[in-house]
Amino acid sequence: MLIYYIISLVVIGIDQITKYLTLENIPLHENIEVIPSILSFTYFKNTGAAWSILEGQMIFFYIVTFIVVGVIVYYMQTQGRNDKKFAFALSLILGGAIGNFIDRLLLKYVVDMIRLEFIDFPIFNVADMALTMGVAFMILYLFYDEWKEHKQKKVGMK
């Protein structure tokens, strides 16, 4: 189980380092092209959640994050022990949730900086990527698990 908590810590570390570098090197709202027409870095203060929804609701985010982290740790300790895929998805979600929580706690906003130039998509950060990948892996895992269970029942009927 320790490896999955280490994965979460690595996500948090990379997230916080990229945010620190953004704060130190990119003025607010300045756009720095990395790959022209594809990727740039733009320092943005996000006081809400994804797509800036629920802006300024910090107490709400503190409570929700505390609950989410508690539920994730519970499932990592109970269900994650038996399934590496499930534990991996949870570790990404945990790292992402804590990464953004640190910003909200210390700065009262989340530092976003990654901008995809080729699509009209909100600016995001490493924690957001970890959360998104963790949720995607979780959905795939749940579909796979359901399919596997359905297949086993079908074999048992024969």
Score class of each variant (00 low, 15 high):
21 L>G: 09
41 F>C: 02
29 H>N: 14
16 Q>S: 08
50 A>T: 09
67 I>L: 14
29 H>F: 13
67 I>T: 04
73 V>S: 03
41 F>H: 05
68 V>A: 13
36 P>S: 12
19 K>D: 03
35 I>D: 12
35 I>Q: 11
64 V>K: 06
25 N>A: 02
47 T>W: 00
44 F>D: 08
53 I>K: 06
45 K>E: 15
51 W>Q: 04
70 G>A: 06
15 D>T: 04
38 I>Q: 10
33 E>S: 15
29 H>P: 00
39 L>P: 06
24 E>I: 03
20 Y>C: 04
46 N>W: 10
69 V>M: 04
24 E>N: 12
63 I>S: 01
43 Y>P: 02
14 I>G: 09
60 F>E: 02
49 A>T: 08
23 L>N: 14
14 I>A: 13
46 N>H: 12
14 I>R: 13
47 T>E: 14
51 W>V: 13
36 P>F: 00
16 Q>V: 09
43 Y>F: 15
60 F>T: 12
20 Y>A: 11
55 E>F: 04
73 V>T: 08
60 F>S: 05
39 L>T: 05
41 F>L: 15
26 I>F: 07
17 I>R: 00
23 L>R: 14
68 V>G: 03
59 I>T: 12
72 I>E: 04
25 N>L: 02
37 S>C: 01
64 V>I: 14
35 I>E: 12
35 I>C: 11
59 I>L: 13
51 W>F: 15
40 S>K: 00
29 H>Q: 12
22 T>W: 00
20 Y>E: 04
70 G>L: 04
14 I>Y: 08
64 V>H: 07
21 L>F: 14
55 E>N: 12
51 W>D: 01
21 L>A: 05
62 Y>Q: 07
37 S>V: 00
69 V>N: 07
63 I>L: 12
38 I>E: 06
53 I>G: 08
65 T>N: 10
40 S>L: 08
40 S>I: 01
52 S>D: 13
39 L>I: 14
45 K>G: 04
26 I>G: 09
40 S>E: 13
62 Y>L: 09
36 P>C: 01
16 Q>G: 08
